[in-house]
């Protein structure tokens, strides 16, 4: 149980091995294992998000969007953007003179996102790009804002992804990472553990008929670096004025850093 209450801050890759949830796997295999998870959950992803978080993920995402300070005419990259919740809002904020790129490594998630955004009538200013965050296929200094919501913990080499994001940001641009983090109180940690390791996989089974994928999601949250560690990782690749804001008692944190 102790293993569950702590965020382990395990290094991404050691001796060619990495973590996939609580399992140790060959680093080169993690990408396809993560791909399988999101391929399996893609169709039910949106509904599961609402069920699992009781709709609170919408508020976390709104906070991220407000903190991004996007303006009309800007270029935004919604990385690991999945089904495009952030893209939809950014598309309306930057307006017809701006552009939003919805990028994800997983074609199934991207496809669900594309359909959803088209149904919302958002077609004008959105590009869809299948890409690995570790090797972004964009020129240097392209984006005013990069957001990554609930994506970074799935990436095999997080530092590489952060460096790649830094490269594609314009000077003056900013990165916002919204991710599960470490609850600030012991009591909340216990309730949260009970919820994620007992209830969440059951809910996954009930709604999406997929217990395993939701078990991975819960485990991957615990393996993700805590607030201070992620902040240092961002600073290590060059981000400045790096800060974070805890939400819902630290269950989720929003990290923000600038490229100057």
């Amino acid at each position: 149980m102790e293993k569950q209450t702590q965020t382990l801050n395990a290094p991404d890759i050691e001796n060619g091995k990495t973590h996939f949830g609580f399992k140790q796997v060959d680093a080169q295999d993690k990408e396809s294992m993560v791909a399988d998870v999101f391929h399996n959950v893609a169709a039910k992803y949106d509904i599961m998000n609402d069920v699992m978080s009781l709709g609170i993920h919408r508020i976390w995402k709104r906070f991220t969007i407000d903190s991004a300070g996007a303006r009309k005419g800007q270029q935004v990259l919604d990385l690991a953007g999945g089904t495009g919740d952030l893209t939809a809002k950014f598309s309306r904020i930057v307006g017809p003179t701006g552009r939003v790129t919805l990028s994800d490594i997983n074609p199934s998630m991207l496809e669900v996102g594309k359909d959803k955004l088209r149904d919302m009538g958002l077609v004008q200013n959105i590009d869809y790009v299948e890409a690995n965050a570790e090797e972004l296929p964009f020129p240097d200094n392209q984006f005013d804002i990069v957001t990554m919501a609930f994506g970074l913990r799935n990436v095999t080499n997080k530092s590489k992804a952060l460096a790649s994001i830094y490269r594609v940001l314009k000077p003056g641009g900013r990165l916002l990472v919204l991710e599960f983090s470490k609850p600030t109180s012991e009591g909340l940690s216990k309730i949260y553990d009970a919820y994620s390791f007992h209830l969440l996989p059951k809910m996954g089974k009930l709604v999406a008929n997929d217990e395993e994928s939701y078990r991975y999601l819960a485990e991957s949250i615990r393996m993700h670096p805590d607030q201070e560690t992620l902040k240092s990782m961002m600073e290590d690749v060059g981000f400045e004025n790096t800060t974070y804001t805890n939400m819902t008692g630290g269950i989720v944190a929003l990290h923000k850093g600038y490229k100057f």
């Binding site: 709104r62 969007i65 407000d66 300070g69 303006r71 009309k72 309306r92 009538g121 958002l122």
Partner: peptide, 19 residues
């Protein structure tokens, strides 16, 4: 947008050229 209005309540007034 064509199908809805998005509303935000920022903490501070946005710069003139943001909207």
């Amino acid at each position: 947008s064509a199908t809805q209005i998005d509303i935000s309540l920022p903490e501070q007034q946005l710069a003139e050229d943001a909207v």
